[in-house]
């Protein structure tokens, strides 16, 4: 090849390219994994309830914040949720009664969607104060919508219906 800077087909070029391409594949997978780890979102339920067996009791009044999110107030029987991204987080509890502040860090397992933190346990120092929350259906968002209507699909694929246009456009 006239003026081609690299020696085409030379064995060392070939190996180098193979290596670089292989490395890129690895990088591809790595980034994917990294994105999953750093981007995975979890719901944290923050619970302020008495224990069934009376081993601990709800805090009378407190302010809880997760990471640097805005804190909110909790009274006995309250339960609220926070969304977090990633696995390592801190919880900060400020108890009104004695103005005591407790700060603890915790790790959410990668593949668990919802965790529940019992703040009384945190305050009482009962381990484990964080546990996976299994009743998934409770947190299902009201995203219910009808199954795709069969009759209209051929039409919509014709992308000719104006409704489709508005959908795609969706002026905010």
């Amino acid at each position: 090849m006239n003026g081609t800077a690299n020696a085409k087909g030379a064995p060392n070029t070939k190996t180098r390219r193979l290596l670089i391409r292989g490395a890129l594949l690895v990088v591809y997978v790595l980034i994917m994994v990294l994105m999953i780890y750093s981007g995975r979102r979890h719901t944290i339920l923050i619970d302020n309830k008495d224990a069934a067996d009376g081993s601990y009791s709800a805090i009378n009044g407190m302010e809880v914040s997760i990471d640097k999110q805005e804190s909110s107030e909790y009274y006995p029987g309250d339960r609220d949720k926070a969304m977090v991204q990633g696995q390592k987080h801190t919880i900060k509890v400020n108890i009104f009664d004695d103005n005591k502040t407790i700060e603890k860090s915790f790790t959410v397992p990668l593949w668990s969607d919802v965790m529940i933190i019992s703040v009384p346990k945190v305050v009482a120092g009962i381990e484990p104060w964080i546990a996976p929350f299994t009743m998934a259906e409770q947190i299902q968002e009201a995203q219910e919508s009808a199954p795709p209507a069969g009759e209209t699909t051929f039409q919509s694929l014709g992308s000719m219906i104006p409704e489709g246009m508005e959908e795609a456009q969706q002026s905010p």
């Binding site: 994917m32 994105m35 999953i36 981007g39 995975r40 979102r41 969304m83 991204q85 969607d113």
Partner: peptide
């Protein structure tokens, strides 16, 4: 459940 810009990169990948 991959959120934020990480979710976008993941979707692209």
């Amino acid at each position: 459940g991959i959120s934020n810009w990480q979710g976008l990169v993941f979707a692209l990948l």
